[in-house]
Structure formats: C-alpha cells, structure tokens
Simulated assay, not measured.
Amino acid sequence: MTTTTERAYEYTDLPRLMELMTGDEKHGPAATSTLDALWVLYDRVLRVTPERADDPARDRFLLSKGHGPMAYYAVLAAKGFLPVAWLEGFGAYDSPLGHHPDRLLVPGAEIGSGSLGHGLPIAVGTALGLKARGLTDPRVWVLVGDAEMDEGSNHEAVAYAGPAGLEQLHALVIDNASASYARPGGIAARFEAAGWSTATADGRDHDALYAAFTAPHPGRPHVVVARAEPKEFSGEPKNA
C-alpha cells in the first residue's frame, strides 16, 4: 500500500508530526535520537519512494531499533508512505502504527521490529539475497541502537559481513550512551576490526551525516556511528 502526501513536508515539520502521537510507552528519547539521521536518509540518500515501495531495485531500510518508532512514523508520513492522519492513533488498539512497527501494517516498513538484535542479521541476509538474485545496485541500510550492539547476534553479523565483503550493506548505529558494556576504542572500532568501512558523525548535523552516509567503501560494508545526546539525562531508563 502506498500513499501520497497532501503537501510537501520539510524537516521543520517533524516535531509537529511527532507531537500528534500521544499516549504511554512512547520511548520518546529513543525516538528523538534517531530523528535527524532518519530524515537525512529518507530525504537525501535512500532510493525509495511510496511509488517504488515494491520495486525490486529499491534501496531497503530496516529499522532494528524498533521501540520508540515515533520518529520513523513521522518521517514515513512526511515522505508520503502513510497518511499523516494515522499518527494521531499511534499505539491504539485499532491503529496500524503500533509501539513496534509491523511490516504487514506499516507502508514502507521492510521488517517487523522490536526484538533487539534481529535487524543487523536480517540486513546481512537481505544483502546476500539481493546478491544471489543478481541485484547488485540496491543498498541495504539498517538502524540499530548502541545498547542493541550488546546482543551476540549483532556481533556474529558484524564478524561475518566484513570478510564476506558485503558492499551493499550499511549500518547506522545511534549512539546515545545507552550501552551497558564498554568497547575498547568505541563502537566503530568493533566494526573496523571486522573489516568494515567506518565513519562517525554528529547525529544532529545533517551535512556531516550525509557525508558519512555517502562515503565510498568499495568491497566492504559500511557503518556510520551517529552520536546523539546521552539518554541518561532524559530521565528514561536505558533501553538501546
């Protein structure tokens, strides 16, 4: 299912769109930490539109950090994948916009998410599947949280993708200081040790994010670590 926007929405409209989503269990800081990176991806990087949502040649975006999806829903609405009117029903029993995205209900969503640690392995499989089908042009992007990187499934995916040379694979790690376990050298160092191309950017600087997203990385998967304000200052319990 695809839709069209009633008017063109810009980045400055996103806070208002997010305010339409009310209720409990919003995971607000988890959502807002992703807002700028999601906007830059959908506005300037991803080759996917509502009209191309089923095109085999489209880029794929997988939201692994599925809790607190308000920013994701706001960006999808702004880009015409779903009606803005749906936002006001966020989290309601009869709303397609649940507290975790459901790919069968949310136009533009590639996967259902919320169980942390699944997205990156699925993205590896997606890149392998595209390659097996001879579709070497579409790019695969997956957004994960820094605390989510504590999951062992992600470490296995990182360790496999680098030596496999999955150039179509791109990971975006939102670093809001939620991780429980320190990594020597930081998040990017873990990927670099496995043969990935890496970049780190201010998660609120759109030009810096765009430069990091589009950095060339021939023969290797690419990860961008986007640093956002620490979640501990929000008063919300840590959770990826």
Rank of each mutant, 00 (worst) to 15 (best):
L17W: 05
N176G: 00
N239G: 11
F90G: 04
G186K: 04
G203R: 06
W196P: 03
S115K: 06
G68Y: 08
P230V: 13
A226Q: 03
G23F: 12
D137H: 09
R139H: 04
R7K: 14
Y181N: 15
D24R: 14
T49G: 06
A226L: 07
T22P: 02
R103P: 08
H217N: 04
R103A: 13
V106Q: 11
I174E: 06
E88F: 03
L14C: 07
E229A: 14
G152L: 01
G108N: 09
G186R: 10
S178E: 15
R44T: 06
L128F: 03
G108V: 05
L87A: 10
F81H: 07
S234K: 12
G129R: 07
A123D: 02
H99P: 08
D102M: 03
A211K: 13
A161N: 00
G66I: 04
A194G: 11
P163H: 06
R60E: 02
I187Y: 05
P15M: 11
S180P: 00
F213Y: 13
P107F: 13
A8E: 13
L135V: 03
D202V: 13
P216K: 00
E148G: 07
T3P: 07
A240R: 01
V124F: 03
V84K: 08
F61P: 03
K238N: 12
V142L: 02
V45P: 04
L135Q: 01
A212G: 00
I174R: 04
H217C: 03
P69C: 01
T136G: 04
P56S: 01
R227W: 10
E236G: 08
L105F: 02
R47H: 09
D202R: 02
G68Q: 09
G125N: 01
A123I: 00
W141K: 01
L76D: 10
P56F: 09
A177E: 15
E192M: 06
P230F: 05
Q168Y: 06
A199E: 10
L35E: 08
H222R: 13
E19M: 14
A208D: 07
A208F: 13
A201L: 14
A123Q: 05
A194N: 11
T214H: 10
T12C: 10
G125Y: 06
P216L: 05
P29M: 07
T198L: 11
H100E: 13
A208E: 13
F90I: 14
E6M: 03
V48R: 08
A132N: 09
A92W: 12
Y210E: 15
A77T: 07
V48G: 01
A53T: 12
D205L: 14
Y9H: 12
A37Y: 05
K231P: 02
R227L: 13
G195Q: 05
A123V: 00
F213I: 05
P230L: 10
S115A: 10
R139P: 03
Y160M: 00
L87F: 04
D13N: 09
D207T: 12
N239T: 10
S180V: 14
L20V: 04
A177W: 09
L14A: 03
P163K: 08
N239F: 15
